[in-house]
Design a protein around this nucleic acid. Structure first.
Lengths: 178, 178
DNA sequence: ATTGTTCCTTACGTGAACGTCAGCTTAGCA
DNA sequence: TGCTAAGCTGACGTTCACGTAAGGAACAAT
């Protein structure tokens, strides 16, 4: 496939990038309430997010992922659905906005804080503290929105330019046909 | 400035990235019709496009820029406004779509062909040939549009997600305030 | 207990996209 | 004609974002 082909396909997504674990995830739920907070290992997370274990470890290395605070060195990393979500978010923002991982780690300060905030929101009864946390959240999201909307505007302008070009070419073709 | 700051500013553009040529472009038009097809050298092009001479040479090296077909080796490269436009286009697509330069060179086949097409369109009187050229142009633009619109859709979805999140946080804040 | 698969850490390798330095030539000007 | 700023051609260095390989430990199943 050509490079442009890849670029065009890039919008589709949802492919099967590599087969790491051959037999799929255990279909029969052996343990009760298994789906809610299943503990996953790195290979599964990688497969679910369309990345590789190496990538996940790298993201941990540079501080994008926590990588199991309480994990004993030398033992397996274990992840929950929350980490999967985060990796998905990382990939999405990275591809869509073309940000470097350093920029992302700053932007994702929002997400990092969100987990913390959710925990603390449920833990505290102090309305003042809750207010503070929510305001922080709002600020982070606003940051992301600013970035995304800026990109949207630029892309819209590009689209307009291209449409205009296409229109002109069509006009000339009609002239020619007439 | 923080990385996120840069990312947020990235939408603004139009900064002065570096001062290469101290005294600006000769303000007095010595030669007549100077602005139409001024011949520029690499430093000026770099300054105008917010890049560096090295970058321009690199783009030439990998085939993204022609770099003066008729240029004698060892002599200075010279550029016209067309090259400046092309570099601008490259930078724009690269940043906005996050494409690799190889992908870009495929996508920009359109632009490459356009110059050719414009020349040939004026050179030939054969309507059949003209039709063919215009159809080619149309195809290339359509390719670009597909790519851009795909991105636009993805970004719009992201924006919607973020807005939804922001809405929820605001709701909780109102609850709290009430 | 053995075995096969997945994972661990460490460390070196890689491709893209330039940056940077050296040594020399060209172009504009005084 | 001489000077200086800008450009030229190698060629090596660098950062990012991982890939890959080696040697060993951990888990699941038998």
């Amino acid at each position: 496939m050509t490079a442009i082909g890849e670029a065009l396909q890039q919008a589709g997504g949802a492919d099967t990038p590599h087969a790491d674990t051959p037999h799929a995830d255990t279909p029969h739920a052996d343990t009760p309430h298994a789906d809610a907070e299943r503990v996953m290992r790195i290979g599964e997370v990688a497969a679910l997010t369309g990345t590789t274990p190496r990538t996940i470890r790298y993201y941990e290395e540079i501080g994008l992922l926590s990588g199991g605070d309480t994990r004993v060195l030398g033992k397996h990393r274990c992840y929950s659905q929350a980490e999967v979500d985060r990796v998905h978010e990382i990939v999405r923002l990275k591809e869509l906005l073309g940000l470097s991982l350093e920029q992302l780690s700053q932007l994702l300060e929002a997400e990092t804080a969100r987990a913390e905030i959710r925990r603390e929101l449920h833990a505290t009864d102090d309305p003042g503290r809750q207010r503070e946390l929510l305001l922080q959240s709002e600020g982070h999201i606003a940051n992301q929105l600013t970035l995304v909307r800026g990109r949207l505007a630029e892309l819209a302008k590009l689209e307009a330019d291209l449409s205009e070009r296409a229109r002109r070419v069509r006009l000339r073709l009609e002239e020619l046909g007439a």
